[in-house]
């Protein structure tokens, strides 16, 4: 039997918003330690990795490891039936054909239940080695979303150049060029408003704006985003999810032919 209760049900709604445009379907792997999801987008250029630790749930029980293949458009329909202040419980039997989402109002006088059919997904998992990145940037997630949105008006790809002086995001297209430079914050009142660069060596890489804009849909999950870059390996865009886990997006850099 599997059961996971999340008093802050809105978190699961935000998680789904953060992945549903990138992935059409995904497997939720449930074990005693928590829930994990790893899936590539249709073009296999980006990868989503979600971890929700069992201790972050208000109640968590998983007697046997199980994999629940879900159509994320269907899951989105169900999550739209859940109020932002409602408590979510996910339930499934061992070797399940369906998963049940139960939504409870805070005072307990309304309970909705939705049962969704599961799918058999033949998804391959990729092993991602621990990597020391040349540059790790922490910055306000809202600022990152805005830069992605603004620059994607000009071109399909964005250059991210990180040096000890700061980060430069730039793009060019038919109508002209645009760039945004961010300096490292010298003194911070609030850590979540700071731009912090940990740099081993300067890096310049090019990425597709379309995917970066998709990753920015996780902005409501965290005030801070971290970007990890190294030459010739995928960019990692990470949003921490309160005390429960994280969502990481991996994006292959563009390589000149």
């Amino acid at each position: 039997m599997f059961e996971a209760r999340l008093v802050q049900g809105a978190l699961l709604k935000k998680i789904l918003e953060a992945i549903k445009d990138l992935l059409t379907e995904a497997s939720w792997d449930c074990a005693q330690g928590g829930i994990q999801l790893q899936a590539m987008d249709n073009s296999h250029v980006s990868l989503v990795s979600l971890t929700l630790r069992s201790d972050g749930f208000d109640k968590y029980r998983c007697d046997r490891n199980l994999t629940m293949g879900m159509n994320l458009a269907s899951m989105t329909k169900i999550m739209k039936c859940c109020g932002n202040d409602e408590i979510i419980t996910m339930k499934a039997q061992d070797e399940p054909d369906t998963v049940t989402f139960m939504f409870e109002s805070k005072n307990g006088d309304k309970i909705s239940e939705y049962e969704m059919k599961l799918m058999n997904l033949d998804q391959d998992h990729l092993g991602i080695p621990e990597t020391d990145y040349a540059c790790v940037i922490k910055m306000p997630s809202g600022e990152f979303a805005r830069i992605c949105r603004d620059l994607s008006q000009f071109g399909e790809s964005m250059v991210i150049a990180c040096s000890k002086n700061g980060i430069k995001f730039s793009t060019s297209g038919d109508i002209g060029t645009g760039n945004v430079k961010l300096a490292q914050t010298s003194s911070v009142d609030k850590e979540e408003e700071a731009v912090i660069i940990e740099m081993q060596e300067p890096v310049t890489l090019t990425f597709a704006c379309k995917y970066l804009n998709n990753f920015a849909k996780a902005t409501p999950l965290s005030p801070v985003v971290s970007l990890s870059l190294s030459p010739d390996v995928p960019l990692v865009v990470e949003y921490k999810i309160e005390d429960i886990g994280y969502v990481r997006y991996y994006l292959a850099p563009k390589i000149e032919d």
Binding site: V45, L126, S157, V233, P234, A252, K254, I255, D257
Partner: peptide, 14 residues
């Protein structure tokens, strides 16, 4: 002109 590498060229499946 760009060529975009797929994830599998970076990370091995298991």
């Amino acid at each position: 002109i760009f060529r975009q590498e797929g994830m599998r060229s970076f990370y091995r499946g298991y």
